[in-house]
Amino acid sequence: MEWGVLPTYIDDPKLQADRRRNMINVRSERILEDKKSYWYRLCKQRCLIPVSGTFEHRAVKGWKKKVPYFIGAEGRELFYLPDLY
């Protein structure tokens, strides 16, 4: 099993794996200011989205379509979901 930053700007899976392995030894000063880096987005391009709830879809045996279930916070009209832009 592997873990690491997945560079979303590279489409080829083999190149993604190579780049991910190389990002382990990157200097922090450079990676935080590199606008192509996932870490840059974590630090500079984050936001909160106010929602009343979200839907999860569950497959039901014998049904062709998945069934949507609404999930909300009990006792709250709104809550926030983190996001990157």
Rank of each mutant, 00 (worst) to 15 (best):
A59Y: 07
S37T: 01
L42P: 00
S37Q: 04
E33M: 08
E29S: 15
W39E: 11
Y40V: 05
L32K: 08
W39T: 15
R30L: 06
I31Y: 06
L32A: 01
K44V: 01
K44F: 10
L48G: 00
D34C: 05
E33Q: 10
E33L: 00
W39I: 14
E29A: 07
F55E: 03
W63S: 06
S52M: 08
R58S: 02
H57E: 12
C47L: 14
V26L: 13
V60R: 09
G53M: 05
Y40C: 08
V51A: 11
E56A: 14
R58V: 14
D34A: 11
V26Y: 13
C43F: 14
S37H: 04
P50Y: 07
P50A: 08
W39K: 03
Y38C: 02
C43H: 01
W63L: 10
Q45S: 14
W39V: 05
W63D: 02
R30Y: 06
K35V: 09
S52G: 01
K61W: 03
E33R: 10
I49P: 04
K35P: 05
A59D: 12
L48T: 06
K44E: 13
K61Q: 15
E33D: 01
R30N: 09
K44N: 13
C43R: 06
A59K: 15
G53S: 03
R46W: 12
H57C: 08
I49H: 09
L42H: 15
V60M: 07
D34Y: 10
G62Y: 09
R41H: 13
I49N: 07
Y38W: 07
V51P: 06
W39N: 05
P50I: 11
D34F: 12
K61N: 01
L42N: 15
K44A: 08
W63G: 00
K36Y: 09
G62T: 00
P50T: 03
K35L: 07
C43A: 09
I31K: 14
A59F: 11
S28M: 15
T54K: 05
V26P: 00
L48D: 03
R46A: 10
S28C: 08
L48Y: 12
V51H: 02
G62W: 01
I31V: 13
K35N: 06
Y38K: 08
R27V: 00
F55W: 11
D34K: 01
S37W: 06
S52L: 00
Y38L: 09
Y40N: 12
R27I: 03
K36M: 04
W63F: 11
S28W: 12
R41V: 08
A59V: 01
K44M: 05
V60H: 08
C43K: 02
T54F: 13
R58C: 14
C47D: 03
V60S: 09
S28R: 09
K36P: 01
R46F: 08
K61G: 02
D34N: 11
